[in-house]
């Protein structure tokens, strides 16, 4: 990202918000509307399709709950990493980032187990709108988790080679929190109601 550093002069922030953070928020706002469109269509399908509850019962809510807790804790560790960067305790930053990545991988592994369990029972994406939306939304969310893990991994690598990338920890943290917030809405939508 060196081309960014060389172009922006010190007064390159007319609004006082560092450009990477502003760009991340702009990107997240377009993501909100993307997931909004998907979840919106899901809610509307739910209203017009009476067999929804019957299929919803076959979803493994135990794994879902563990996943939610895993993502919540990973949100905590990534924001602690951001705090540690400001306190210049770079060893703690690496540890927290590593925990975040591990929790993310745990989420994906549990998701894999869950999918294979359901498909094994014959509930594939073609079974009906419930399963189509279930695999669609949680699949897209899992992809976002994967991208989040890669982002955090890059930041961890840069931090391990002591490049002190302060703003990257914050931005990958922002993205990770967004992925967690989406899961906060997806979890009750499919697993609890």
């Amino acid at each position: 990202m060196s081309s960014y550093a060389e172009i922006t002069r010190e007064d390159g922030e007319s609004t006082g918000i560092p450009s990477p953070r502003l760009a991340m928020w702009v990107f997240l706002s377009s993501e909100i509307v993307l997931f909004g469109g998907l979840i919106g269509s899901c809610i509307l399908f739910r209203l017009t399709y009476e067999k929804w509850a019957e299929y919803a019962a076959h979803v493994n809510s135990m794994i879902g709950s563990i996943n939610t807790l895993a993502l919540l804790t990973s949100s905590l560790t990534v924001v602690l990493a951001h705090k540690m960067v400001q306190n210049r305790n770079y060893k703690a930053v690496n540890i927290f980032l590593a925990i975040t990545i591990l929790l993310g991988l745990l989420f994906l592994v549990l998701k894999g187990i869950e999918y294979s369990g359901e498909i094994h029972h014959g509930y594939t994406i073609l079974k009906g709108p419930f399963w189509a939306f279930y695999f669609g939304i949680t699949g897209l969310h899992a992809l976002h988790v994967l991208v989040g893990i890669i982002l955090n991994a890059i930041v961890l690598m840069l931090s391990l080679r002591n490049k002190r990338p302060q703003s990257f920890v914050e931005n990958s943290g922002l993205y990770w929190h967004f992925v967690d917030v989406v899961w906060i809405f997806v979890f009750p939508l499919f697993y609890l109601s």
Partner: peptide, 11 residues
């Protein structure tokens, strides 16, 4: 464009 493209990517 930012705020309107989401639903169509979903669609």
């Amino acid at each position: 464009f930012m705020f309107s493209v989401g639903p169509l990517i979903a669609g």
